[in-house]
Computed example of a mutant assay.
Amino acid sequence: MTPYDAASPQVAKRPPPLVDAFGRTVSYLRLSVTDRCDLRCVYCMAEHMVFLPKVEVLSLEELDRLASAFIALGTRKLRITGGEPLVRKGVMGLIGGLSRHLATGALEELTLTTNGTRLAEFAGGLAEAGVKRINVSLDTLKPELFRRLTRGGDVAKVLAGIDAAQRAGLRVKLNAVALRNDNAAELPELIRWAHGRDLDVTLIETMPLGEVEADRTDQYLSLTVLRRELESFWSLSDIPLQTGGPARYVRVAETGGRLGFITPLSHNFCEACNRVRVTCTGTLHTCLGREDASDLRAVMRAGASDDDLADAIRLAVDGKPKGHDFQIERAEPAVARHMSTTGG
């Protein structure tokens, strides 16, 4: 890999930050390294997914260059996503290479979201690369329910991965999608278990992304309603925690732990959105819930200079919409692309 030089003039001159037309500074990039995953979660993927041909997926060198271009433009937080990022061959080399931006101070945080199935193998390497915290997707502790929701997954592998991550010194936060017909009754116990392990938890409303077999209308659980239910037996206090993402956090007095709510449907978070997503094909999406797209792969493969690439990024961010268009009641998803394709 020939890494983008973090000490180059583009970084040293500190160009103006990325600011969209609504005055929001974009400082957070979620970069997908693959659309592939070793699980098939029912709310995320179709059962028989057709994955991208390799020629369409950015090389590790292209991913490095693209991430570094964003960092040169003021990105302070970089999250590696998938699909499942740890199934991408060579991903640890990419993460290790990108960690140079931590060393220079150009990047404040390098992290990733994972399903945890391969964490036992890679947790130590992530910590050595400067990763301090990670998100692990885990919707249930029940083996049979986990197997059904993921279409064949083994929850024991995820739990072993979480153990390995904590032993390596990584701070772990659980992400759980609230599903009315599957894990709603279990969520208090999942939260209690996680807080007992010194794990934060963020609950997420199911989002209408991509065609899947599951009926999201039946599965939708408003976190506004769920919070009221939790407050019937727990004391929840709002806290001003900011992690760079869209979650709003509370402290649970009885468990001592932190609980986040991501509510794109019952209460959107667009007014303070500071993030964009780039897919593993180099497509920049400035909004999770819109069909906006800018092809940065085409720009790079056409021989663009670093300045040309920076200009393309700025142009795309300038067009970032004011907000998403998620409505759970619609018969069709808000966008056709699956979450696994969009990335994290």
Rank of each mutant, 00 (worst) to 15 (best):
T281F: 01
L94P: 15
A293V: 02
D318F: 13
R36G: 05
G125W: 09
A194D: 13
R277A: 09
I71Q: 00
A184S: 09
G152M: 12
V335I: 09
R297L: 07
D154I: 01
G124Q: 01
F269T: 06
A7F: 08
G83S: 04
L107M: 00
E61V: 07
T286N: 11
S99R: 05
I262Y: 02
A12N: 08
R180L: 10
R65K: 09
A123F: 01
E109P: 05
P17G: 05
G153L: 10
A310T: 03
T342G: 02
T243P: 01
D318Y: 12
V201Q: 11
N135E: 05
A156D: 13
C41V: 08
R36S: 04
A72K: 02
A247D: 11
H338S: 14
L29Q: 03
L221N: 05
T150Q: 05
A304I: 04
A7K: 13
P188S: 10
L52E: 13
G344R: 03
L31H: 04
K142Q: 15
L221I: 00
T255F: 02
A127T: 00
H101A: 02
V57L: 13
L223R: 06
L190N: 09
A293Y: 08
A302E: 11
D139M: 05
E61F: 09
A298V: 05
D35I: 09
E144T: 06
T281I: 05
V278G: 07
H101E: 00
H324R: 14
T114I: 01
S59N: 09
E47H: 15
V19T: 07
L52H: 12
R65I: 01
V172Y: 13
L126S: 03
V276N: 05
A21K: 15
F70W: 01
R197G: 04
S235G: 08
V55N: 15
F51L: 10
H48W: 12
R192F: 13
V172P: 02
F146E: 12
Q166V: 00
V50I: 14
A312V: 06
V276R: 07
Q242C: 11
D307V: 04
A120Y: 03
S294K: 07
G124I: 01
A176T: 06
R248Q: 15
S59Y: 06
R151H: 12
L102Y: 03
R258V: 04
E229P: 04
R79S: 03
V155W: 11
E211W: 08
E271Y: 07
N181L: 12
S305F: 13
R337Q: 10
V212L: 06
D182W: 15
M92K: 08
A176S: 12
E271W: 10
L112W: 00
F326I: 02
A304E: 10
V11W: 11
R192V: 13
V11R: 12
P240S: 08
Q219I: 00
C273D: 09
T283Y: 11
M45E: 12
R76V: 01
T150H: 11
F70Q: 01
V57H: 10
L66S: 11
L187T: 08
I204P: 00
D64L: 06
E56Q: 15
G196E: 14
R228K: 07
P143E: 10
R14Y: 06
G257P: 11
V278E: 07
A120L: 08
